[in-house]
Amino acid sequence: MGFRGEGALLADGAPVETPRDAARDAAHEELRKAVYHQHEPGVVERFVDWVQHQISRAVDGVSTPLGGGGNAALALLIVLALVLGFVLWRRYGAPRRAARATGKLFTGPEGPRSAAGHRADAAAHAAAGAWEDAVREQMRALVRALEERTVLAPRPGRTADEAAAEAGRALPDHARELASAARLFDDIAFGDRPADERAYRLLADLDQTLGRTRPVAVPAGGGTA
């Protein structure tokens, strides 16, 4: 750098005495130059690095103000983890799974399609390995088939959870399977769960099983026999 610290020597070996404060100020001035900061991370990255450093220090063991020992380390870890979680949430937003509450089963401007049409589309997507689309269409086929059999009353804007709850009252022996199918659909269509052949087959098999099941009479407002 452009300064000599305390204790430096001249070319002839004579010591140079630089005041400590002057040396510190010179170092700070040198480090403020842009060349030292052009590759520095952003504010969030620096904060995350700081949190990770504090966690490492806590793991090594902290002392007093919280009582020292493992309890203090644990408390500090919890606080830092919460802070880190908040920072990441502010940066990346809420998880996609939050969309589940408003995710409609049938979307788009087109009119109602038959269960057979949805099944055909699901099979085509499955043959192409497009498992997420296959799962969507197969779940729609399952619910549309229940509407065609009047187990469910046709209703625009229905969610998979709502369809499963209503159908489960008319098909009580399969209520749990319907609820699981709705959760699977939501997790794939509106959450972050990857779709695969197993998920598609599970819905296709349930669709076939329900087609062979006779509904029971339920009070007005639910499914009908």
Rank of each mutant, 00 (worst) to 15 (best):
V44L: 14
E45F: 08
F47C: 05
G117W: 04
W50R: 09
I55D: 05
T107K: 13
G85M: 13
Q54H: 11
N71M: 05
K104M: 14
L66P: 01
N71H: 00
L105V: 11
A101M: 14
A99L: 12
L77M: 01
D49A: 05
V43S: 15
L84K: 15
E110H: 14
H118T: 01
V43L: 14
I55R: 09
I78W: 02
R113K: 13
A116I: 07
R113I: 07
Y92R: 09
P41Y: 07
K104E: 15
S114K: 06
L88I: 09
D60T: 12
A72M: 06
A122D: 06
L82G: 14
R46E: 10
I55F: 02
T64R: 03
R97S: 10
G42P: 02
A98G: 14
L77F: 05
F106Y: 10
D121E: 14
A101V: 13
E110C: 00
A126C: 10
A99S: 10
E45S: 00
F86G: 09
A81N: 05
G67R: 05
A123P: 01
R119I: 10
S114V: 11
W89G: 06
Y92P: 07
R97E: 09
L66K: 01
L84I: 01
R100D: 15
R96W: 02
A122S: 11
D49V: 07
R57H: 00
D49I: 08
L76A: 08
V83H: 00
F47D: 01
G103A: 13
D49N: 07
W50A: 09
I55P: 00
G111W: 02
A98K: 12
L82H: 08
G70C: 03
H53R: 05
